[in-house]
Design a protein around this nucleic acid. Structure first.
Lengths: 189, 189
DNA sequence: CTCCGGTGCTTCGAAGTCGAAGCACCAATC
DNA sequence: GATTGGTGCTTCGACTTCGAAGCACCGGAG
């Protein structure tokens, strides 16, 4: 599945040699995570009636003592701000979190998890862990686990070293990037 | 960041001990892949004006000699059938794939990539590889790469051994699942 | 005090995604 | 040939997601 035909390579004028091994590793990684995420979502929906994003938000709030601002929360889960506003609205309506203006900065909204939200996390977490154990960790040895953790931690930190998505300056967009040789926005008009 | 508070654990009546190490590995994995996927989407949009899903579809079609049915394609990319219908419509309109009824089975639709689609894959693939190399492989040694590939291949195959999403029988749904704390293990609805 | 660039969050419109229902077809049976 | 259960794909409606635009606020400068 991961082997791209040499035609595509030879046909185009692109020169850089593609590394089939890296490509295979990359595809296997993405596919495995897709499968895992899908199953995890099924479990969370069944046992707690929440989405994976909602679980991430609750778990992150539960992992910090006090509260987080919306921006901190959005960056934490790799999420757009507007999407977070939407989800926070749902979670607040469900009584799982609270939102209140920051006393220090009226612009900021402090988000905290409620008792109910905490209980929900506690309720779905065991099943969550069970699914990951069955699908992800079952075929892995202790050594694999260690290595995988080491690798992914390094990769994550490496990526985090890049500027986070919310740090992209808002004004710095006088014209869109040249976008290679495709008419921008033409495709799905 | 990944350590859940013991409150949530102690509060709920759930018994199974949670493995903090596995949880940490799991979160690092999911977070890293999320970050990677986001960046990859930016690159694909910029250089080929396609989404990651569309790239996956084209790449998969390019990797097989002839053509695939819609179901084969959907299973290959871990995707819903209705979503595939939508994306196939876009790709066909853009001239990147063709759809025609199967001569053997009138129900089936055979999907094939066009010359143009093949050229597009060839055009965006180098940049795609470059992004993954910069974000994913840069902090990894050759040994890490080997290990990661070995691990994720095993995990993927392990998950693929579970029945694919399209194989779930359609009739087996007399009434919707009670949700909330549904019977554990009833995962599939 | 007022201005002004910068920042935090929300609103808004467009697009993508999913599951359920529906349509067309196949194959087995009568 | 007609019926019936199963399968492949699409349509439909609801929901989620995103980026751009907008509003409110902060802090420094005049």
């Amino acid at each position: 599945m991961v082997g791209l035909p040499s035609d595509a390579d030879a046909d185009a004028d692109s020169g850089p040699a593609l590394d089939p091994q890296q490509l295979g590793v990359y595809f296997a990684l993405m596919e495995a995570v897709s499968l895992l995420q899908h199953q995890v979502e099924v479990q969370l929906r069944a046992e707690g009636d929440i989405s994976y994003v909602q679980f991430q938000l609750l778990a992150r709030l539960a992992s910090v003592d006090g509260h987080l601002t919306m921006t901190q929360l959005a960056d934490g889960v790799v999420y757009s701000r507007s999407g977070l506003t939407y989800q926070a609205g749902l979670l607040e309506k469900a009584g799982l979190i609270t939102r209140r203006p920051s006393p220090d900065d009226e612009r900021s909204t402090l988000v905290a998890v409620t008792e109910e939200g905490l209980a929900l996390v506690g309720r779905v977490l065991p099943g969550h862990v069970e699914v990951t154990r069955r699908l992800l960790f079952e075929p892995l040895s202790d050594d694999d686990l260690h290595h995988l953790g080491d690798i992914m931690t390094r990769v994550r930190d490496h990526m985090r070293a890049q500027p986070p998505r919310s740090a992209v300056p808002r004004r710095r967009r006088p014209n869109p990037p040249p976008a290679a040789q495709a008419a921008p926005g033409d495709r799905d008009g």
